[in-house]
Amino acid sequence: MIRFVLRRLLAAAILLLIVLTLAFAVVALAPGDPMAPTDPRIPPEQAERLRALYGLDQPLPVQYVRWLGAVVLHWDWGQSYRTGQPVAELLFDALPPTLLLAGAALLAQYLLGIGLGLLAACRPNSRLDLSVRVASLVVYALPTFWVGLMAVLVVAVGLGLAPAGGMTSAAAFELGPVAAALDVLAHLWLPALVLGLSMAGDIARYTRSSLIEFQATEAGRAARARGLSETRILLVHGLAHAAPRLLQLASVSAPLLLSGAVVAEVVFAWPGLGTATLLAIQSGDIPVVLAATAYGAGLVIAASLAADLLLTRLDPRISVE
């Protein structure tokens, strides 16, 4: 197992290096000067000084080696061109809200998806089953930004059932720990639900098909022959049968969750990695774009690795060797 993990970690490091190099090459070779002042009152000499300050006056290979060296040796991702803030510090602030949102969305998508899949599987080809299947396709097809906007307009602004945006209420720093946690939860549930909704449809369909498939297997028939209740057959044995496939979906949904988070964060004014990345892209803030790309790639690779490891635990047919 340890050798497997080490092998995967090494592969992940190589993959990350490739992603970093490609990302650097793409942004470095893109046309445009990130230091070009957009305000005519800022003289070109200032841009020259800033270019020298950020090392942009050096040849590209030198810039690359310096940048990569600083990242690997000191976890120094440079400074934001836009705000002057160290990028590592900026993303350190932005990452936890995104992880919280993505984690809650993952939970929401599994709760919803498995629940709906169970409903559909217990009466295959019934009206209920058809409704679940159609609904799951519809939510899968709906773009997150539209669902998010509608959710804010109807649920938050119209009905007042949730805050309209942000991660906390105004001046929440004064709240005690319990009230602060509840305040974050109150702000979290709607964006997490919106973000989790699209993949929930996928999970519902996989859950349904796995459970129906299980009922037709020898194990399913044996369980029924032993007199187990339908509830126990589906909830315990059926879900255990479906678990590996559902887990694989988690690694597939990680990049979707991250890209969806960009949209959800903007719609819900959620202060995460997505918002930071979007602002950086809009303003040509290359160090932040590069770091956010690397963080995103790292998160996806980590999710994939975790899913693989869990899969080996859940499914004895899969060996790590």
Binding site: L149, A156, A164, E265, V266, A269, P271, L278
Partner: peptide
Amino acid sequence: TASDGAALTNL
């Protein structure tokens, strides 16, 4: 802060 005018309007 919000990065989007629509989000500000909703708030």
